[in-house]
Amino acid sequence: MALSTDDMTAPTWAEKHASSIRTLRLYTKIFRSNGAAMLGLGIISVFMVLVIFGPSFVPYPEDAQGVVHLERKLLPPSAEHWFGTDEVGDDIFTRVVIGARVSLQIGLIVTGIAMLIGVPLGIIAGYVGGWVEEAIMRVTDIFLSIPGLILAIAIVGVLGPGIFNSMLALSLVWWPGYVRLVQAKTLSLKSAIYVDAARSIGASRMRIVFVHILPNCMSPIIVKASMDMGMAILGAASLGFLGLGAQPPFPEWGAMISVGRNYLPDWWWYSFFPGLAIYLTVLGFNLLGDGLRDILDPRGRE
């Protein structure tokens, strides 16, 4: 045989990954040509830097826990306190930076749980069809027909306020979107010829789902997840603002605005800076998601 085993096992790394490298370069180019996406990436990069290194450079780390320094309460922004201080004298800059960590946790957990519930249900609905699909999709429709935040408020109302319960509530209202997305994609992939080809060589249902359908559904899931990160953060902040989520003095942006609102308009910085943080983060994740869609959606590309 012409092919020795050595030949077969030792393709160079570059050879083996030539296609991935090209794809990555193409993605980089498309992404870089999209100014908004780059802005989103920039914002999210800053956000990630704050998440990772925040605790080590904030000027008053102990303020995150809500230590009371009444001698410096409600100071306007200055060199010592960039974003000013709140009603117990805590440094708002410190609390906003530490809040980024909380927000990321919320975003990851909420979208993560939503995906864990929604993606399998979507695949089952799309692939199995019949009454199973009907049942799953009608339940999904019911959830989708109720405004998410209101449902979340109701759930928190039952479970009681708190950061953990608010994340749980948000996850429970978030999954239907994934079911719809994945079900539609699975339906179209189910009739793909390569799925037929896999069936004709005797692949099992599980194999078809995990090897042939799921990997080809990933692009839209990633795009949606990236946009949902922002929306989940906004949702959690809304619950916090309503007093149903994180409780002050926990450094959560929504809860901070909720208290700061009482000090408007004279002590504007109290609610302004946490609000700006929410705004930028949500914007960042949305722009990033848009950029990812440009890359991962093959339509509109050569």
Partner: peptide
């Protein structure tokens, strides 16, 4: 059915869509 799948195979019309793009 598994035995049948061993003994009878199919080649499809459009080779482009008959291969999983991620494999």
């Amino acid at each position: 059915e598994k035995i049948l799948r061993r003994r009878a195979q199919m080649v499809f019309q459009d080779p482009h869509s008959a291969l999983n793009p991620r494999m």
